[in-house]
Design a protein around this nucleic acid. Sequence first.
DNA 1: CTCTAAGTGTAATACTAATTACGTGTCGTG
DNA 2: CACGACACGTAATTAGTATTACACTTAGAG
Lengths: 207, 207
Amino acid sequence: MTADPETELQRPADRGVARRQAFLNAARQVFLENGYEAASVNDVVRLAGGSLATLYAQFGNKEGLFLAVSQDQHDRFIRAMTPASVGHLPLEAALQQIGEHFLRALLARDNIAFFRLVIGEGRKFPQLLQRYLSSGGADRVRAELAGHLRGAGISDAETCASYFIELLRSRHHYRALADDSYSLPEKQLSEHVAGAVRFLLRGMNLG
Amino acid sequence: MTADPETELQRPADRGVARRQAFLNAARQVFLENGYEAASVNDVVRLAGGSLATLYAQFGNKEGLFLAVSQDQHDRFIRAMTPASVGHLPLEAALQQIGEHFLRALLARDNIAFFRLVIGEGRKFPQLLQRYLSSGGADRVRAELAGHLRGAGISDAETCASYFIELLRSRHHYRALADDSYSLPEKQLSEHVAGAVRFLLRGMNLG
DNA sequence: CTCTAAGTGTAATACTAATTACGTGTCGTG
DNA sequence: CACGACACGTAATTAGTATTACACTTAGAG
C-alpha cells in the first residue's frame, strides 16, 4: 500500500527515523517545486505515503517541516561545497581544483532551486537566509582559498579570495538562476575556472 | 475619505490613470513585503483606497496586477542602472564612475527587495526572471563598459567587463540580500569600486 | 439638466489549505 | 496472549482568498 519500501521490515527504534526521512524527502521535492506558500502539506503526505497526523506529530506544523527540510538541504550543500584537501598541490593547480569543485556544487540543480527558495522566502525566514548566504556557502571556500594564497606570500589574501570567488560565480550562477534547463559542461566549466585563475594570478603579479 | 490626494481635482481623461497609479504603488508595497502568494488583493485595495471591482477592471486578475507592478519596477531599475555618459573621461575615471553608479543602483533597498521577489517567484513567472536577470540589469552596463575597454585597446573586452561587474557585486550584493538593514556608506562604496578598478587594470596589464 | 460611463462599497460564491479529531490497524514487549 | 505506543486513513473544522455580482454615487459631456 505504501509507496516507500523504507517503512517495512524496520527494527522498532528506527521506524520513526525512517518515517521522518520519507517525509523530509517528499517535502524537499514539494517545496523546491512550488515554494513555501504554494506547497501543500497534503501533497507531501500523498507523496511520502504516510499520514497527516504522523507528519504533524513529527514536525509540529508546516513551518517546522520547512525548517527541517532547509536544515537537511543546507547540510548537503555545505558537504558538497567543502573542498577536498589539496595542500600538496602548487598554487595554480590548487586554485583550479578548489574552483572547479566550488562551481560544480554551486550550479547543481538542487542547489539552484534551493537558492531560489531561500531567497524568495527571506522575508518570512530571515535567519535561514542569513545562515545560507553568510556562514553557509562561500565562506568556508573563501577561508580555504585565503589559506593557500597566504601560503604563497600574498598580502590581503582575504580580499583576493573574495575576488576569485566572484569571478567564478560570474555569469553562470545568474544564468542558471534564470533558466532551469541551463547546465555547464565539464569542459567549459574547467576552462572558465582556468580563466579566472589566470586573471587572479596576473592581478596579483604572480603569473 | 480616500487616502490619496491624487484622486481629487483630476481632469477627466486622467482619472483612470491616477487610479491605476494608486493601485500600482499600493500593490508594489504589498508584493514587495509579502511575496506573490502571501500578498492579498484585498490588502492592496485597502491600502490604495479604491474598490475591488475597479482593480479587477484595470488589471484583470492578481497575475495581471503582479505583472504590471513588475513592469513598472523593472523600468525604474533599468533607469537607475543605466550609466550617464562618461565618454570624455580617461579609462580609470570612467570605470570608477560607471562602477559607482551601477553598485549604488544595485544595492538600493527597493531593488534588493524586488530581486528577492523575482527570484522567489521564478518558477511561476519564468519570463520575468529571464528579462530581469539577462536583458535587464547588468547587460547594458556590461556593454557600456566593454565599449570603454575596447576603446582603450583591450582584447576580449566583453570578458573583462564581465569580470569587472562580478568584482563589483562582490560581497555587498549578497550581504544586502541576507540583511534587510544592510547599507553601504558612500565612502566605502567608492573605495570598493576603486579596488576593483585597480585589480582589473592590473589584470589587464594596464595599471 | 440629463445621460452615461466609470468608480465605490459590500456581500455572495466557490474553493483551497492548514490543522485537529477519531476510530482502526499493527507490532514489538512484558 | 494481551498491552500500549505508534502509525494509518479519513473526514471535520476553520479560516482565508480570488473572483464576481449588484446596487449606489458621482462628475463631466452634450
